[in-house]
């Protein structure tokens, strides 16, 4: 896909470098909106965005709904705990019901891989924005992570993101650590970083690497300590204990000992190394609490950047038409 304009965002797999850069650059223009006293633009006035989170979420949901509101869209928000989904209504019927109310876009999260793509088949006239599907993709997280990295590197080099395009990613060394097997964030992050030109290494216990890592455009770090020293960016992934990930490692303590960002490892890091985590954090498992709270980590900035990225995605997808590019 050459541009997100007028399209659904289901995955980062088929997004070209120019399409990703367009989203990042558009997000950059919305950063300023979020710093105003009156944080609102009329870009999606009169448009309706349905927010359907079939799986729990704090930051993604709040971030998407904030983004839609700052674009002046009307937001239909469905809380699954009190919806007919609890009465056994199927995904297809739920979508049909929401669609019958008249909507322009659906932002959805679902515990099943591929659910967003299935929904896009049910309602082809509606833009579907994937807010995370099973263990498949979490495209806006990949985009906001790339945006955050570009923003920090640009600040350091005294340039601005939009002027640099994807240039700042050339040769950038990114290490992704933890539960890659079950992580939709890892899949989207790898797509974004590699498409933009960065080098990606991964580090995890063998059981938390995907079954067919050879098909991924990454290399596996043999030595975690060495890889930490090598990296410009360290992206930690959440150990998803609610998905039964616990049984893939003998103990959480052992995971922390072999692959956690402990205080000792953090102290050995180059102070310029960017530390990221998509949240929610298991403090003391993937990362030591004291490291989380260091000003040098980019974790809060990732959350902040979620809003302009999602504004950009909604704007391009819903307001954009295919012809404008």
């Amino acid at each position: 896909m050459k541009s997100l304009r007028g399209q659904s965002l289901l995955s980062l797999e088929d997004l070209s470098r120019e399409a990703i850069v367009e989203i990042l650059d558009t997000a950059e223009t919305f950063v300023e909106v979020n710093q105003r006293t009156i944080k609102k633009v009329p870009a999606l006035k009169g448009r309706v965005v349905a927010s359907l989170f079939f799986e729990e979420s704090t930051r993604t949901r709040l971030s998407f709904e904030t983004a839609a509101k700052r674009l002046s869209a009307d937001v239909l928000s469905l809380a699954m705990a009190s919806s007919s989904v609890k009465k056994g209504e199927s995904l297809r019927d739920t979508i049909a019901t929401v669609d019958a109310l008249g909507i322009d876009a659906v932002v959805m999260r679902h515990h099943s891989s591929g659910a967003a793509l299935q929904v896009s088949r049910y309602v082809p006239h509606v833009r579907v924005i994937n807010g995370g599907d099973g263990q498949h993709q979490h495209p806006t997280q990949g985009l906001l992570d790339a945006f955050t990295v570009r923003q920090i590197v640009a600040e350091r080099e005294g340039t601005r993101g939009p002027e640099s395009g994807a240039e700042l990613f050339q040769g950038l060394k990114i290490l992704i650590v933890g539960d890659l097997r079950h992580s939709r964030v890892a899949r989207s992050d790898v797509n974004a970083y590699v498409t933009l030109g960065a080098q990606v290494r991964v580090a995890a216990p063998g059981t938390l690497l995907p079954d067919d890592l050879s098909s991924w455009p990454v290399t596996v770090a043999d030595n975690f300590e060495e890889a930490l020293a090598w990296a410009d960016v360290v992206g930690l992934l959440r150990l998803q204990q609610e998905r039964g990930t616990g049984s893939y490692v003998p103990t959480l303590h052992e995971f922390t000992a072999t692959h956690g960002l402990t205080i000792e490892r953090a102290q050995r890091l180059n102070p310029a190394t960017i530390i990221m985590h998509p949240g929610p954090i298991n403090r003391g498992v993937e990362i030591d609490s004291r490291v989380v709270d260091r000003p040098s980590t980019a974790i809060d900035r990732q959350v902040t950047n979620g809003v302009p990225i999602r504004m950009a995605v909604l704007y391009l997808s819903v307001a954009g038409t295919g012809e404008t590019i």
């Binding site: 591929g114 099973g134 498949h136 939709r184 079954d211 067919d212 890592l213």
Partner: peptide, 9 residues
């Protein structure tokens, strides 16, 4: 295989 790993299935 490679596809299941990509699709997250």
């Amino acid at each position: 295989g490679a596809l299941s790993s990509r699709l997250g299935l």
